[in-house]
Amino acid sequence: MSALSHLRVLDLSRVLAGPWATQQLADMGATVIKIEKPDGGDDTRGWGPPFLKDRDGQPTRESAYYLCANRGKQSVAIDMASPEGQAQLHELVKSCDVVVENFKVGGLKKYGLDYATLSAIKPDLVYCSITGFGQQGPRADQAGYDFMIQGLGGLMSITGEQHGEPQKVGVAVTDLFTGMYATVAILAALAHRDRTGIGQHIDLALFDCQLAMLANVASNYLVGGVNPPRYGNAHANIVPYQAFPASDGHVIVAVGNDGQFARFAELCGHAEWASDARFATNKARVENRTALVPLIEAALIQQPRAHWIAGMESAGIPGGPINTIPEALAEPQAVARGSVVDIPHPLGSVRMVANPIKFSRTPIRYDAPPPMLGEHTQHILARD
């Protein structure tokens, strides 16, 4: 039995933050009913190429983007703008534990699908709203998208090379983090409901989650009062903790304490660095990074990546290569952990990155692919 096989979720969300949260719940065994527009369905179905290929190798209309966040769900095509669709959804919610939506603030009220309406139908309902800026505040009525939130929320100001332009992260991290916060919040609200019999409304904002993601960098500012700069691949609070050029490419060095630094200095052929007052402690190394980093660069450029990676592994110094995506997914560790799964699909099969959670008693199963548009409409509506 799966961990959440008792749970039923009505998924009204679109794009990535909401679907990412409901995929986590689906992975853990919840029945997730994904409500889609009859005409076209989820917008992300068209966010390609690439598109899934069928058994004959021909592209289909199922985009890789849509596939990545919708496995294990059941697709029901309903026009929520119609009285009939609204009645069907009101009936569905009676048998659901959770509703997840990411419409603009107040956007579902005209359809009778807002928290006030649905909680009157089912008082113990857990209702999670994901918006750009939350349910109140001067920006509450604005739409929010990952890219703009990365900029507005400060993340881009600390991402990129020190003297280059601000950069967004290569994946939609604000959406993904918000989805994960939503999953945690939903499970906590369900625990509260199970104790008290009372549901509640969860108000999650991409902007709030982005600020929380700043973690130690925000803390550096709040404690130190200095606007954090961009460090490229370096770390604000640890040195050396960055990528360095070897003779044939780049290698990551992630020294985490003074003992590791002493071993790293010896590996570089400069054991004296560890006794140099400028470099002996992490505090000193951070203060003198502009003196130390060129010395490390001069040492590492003398040998290829494999030399340094093998040496760091032998000495217990964190570090490694900078893999491409194909290299990362083919890493022996990824293979050993089953990090890529092949799931049967009505059109053939689809390869996906596995959920990283490993349960000892309720392992995650990969027997339900991302659904075709409206695939489960008749089954779900007939049941309810």
Score class of each variant (00 low, 15 high):
Cys209His: 09
Gln136Cys: 05
Arg71Ala: 01
Asn323Lys: 05
Gly40His: 00
Ile322Arg: 02
Val341Tyr: 12
Phe244Glu: 05
Lys283Asn: 14
Glu297Leu: 02
Leu118Gly: 08
Ser63Ile: 01
Gly320Ala: 10
Asp56Leu: 06
Arg230Val: 07
Glu36Ile: 00
Pro228Asp: 12
Val126Leu: 01
Arg361His: 11
Trp273Phe: 14
Lys104Cys: 02
Pro363Ala: 10
Val171Ser: 12
Pro363Ile: 11
Leu113Asp: 07
Leu67Ser: 12
Ala334Ser: 15
Thr377Cys: 07
Tyr366Lys: 01
Val239Asp: 08
Ala265Gly: 13
Val340Pro: 08
Ala330Met: 10
Ala368Met: 06
Asp203Gln: 03
Ile325Asn: 08
Gly41Lys: 00
Leu214Glu: 13
Glu84Thr: 07
Gly225Asn: 05
Ala116Asp: 15
Pro228Val: 10
Gly256Val: 11
Ala334Ile: 11
Gly225Cys: 06
Arg351Pro: 04
Val9Ile: 08
Gly199Tyr: 00
Gln302Pro: 09
Asp39Thr: 05
Leu12Asp: 10
Ser75Gln: 01
Ala182Val: 04
Arg337Asp: 15
Lys283Gln: 15
Met312Ser: 04
Trp308Pro: 10
Ile78Ser: 00
Gly106Asp: 04
Arg193Ile: 07
Gly249Ile: 05
Gly18Pro: 01
Glu287His: 09
Lys34Thr: 00
